[in-house]
Amino acid sequence: MTKRLVQLAGAVVAVAATLGMVGLSRAPLSAYPDDTPVLRLAWSARPERIERCRTLTDAELADVPAHMRQRVQCEGRSASYRLSVSVDGRPALDTLVTGGGARSDRPVYVFRELDVPAGQHEVVVRFEREKISEAEAGGSVEGKNGGVAEDTLMAGRAPREAEERRRRQGEAVPPLMELTTNISAAVREVMLVTYDIDRRALVLRTRAPSQ
């Protein structure tokens, strides 16, 4: 080959290799092969605390370092929930959901994606606290003074603790949430069922919130 031909071949190979590489860096990839609509269940919520509380005696309080004293002591666990979904009356999901973390005391996180056929459907999503045993159903005990001197550290402590427990209880997901809705599922569409913390209820969303 003459030098000019070699140079030409070199240029052609270089351009072809570059185009090949560039082509691979912007090539179509099958992202979601299946075009079935999806019902996505996704939310995070604080589970209810199932606990028994009792007021500590003065002697017990005295044994606790001053900065760790709580007038009412509670022990228990986070509730678990049964999540069930039916589409047009047919069960599509039935599962137990527990809180996150090793001790299941972190918020519950739900993430499930269910294929639903395209078209109109009635969907029922039910999220219900698991039954509580008799022993656990003791309920909470409002903190009372218990005769301990209202010294500087403990001044006004009892109502504050009660308020804190009420607040935590209020943040927890309700014992039962049920969403019954009609959906119109289009091909490749994702319909989201999530927990609206303000309404304390399950809601259906079908379009993206603005970013």
Binding site: P28, L29, E189, R205, T206, A208
Partner: peptide, 10 residues
């Protein structure tokens, strides 16, 4: 998040 495209340019 509410649409699952068949193809993306990757």
């Amino acid at each position: 998040p509410f649409y699952r495209p068949a193809l993306v340019t990757a």
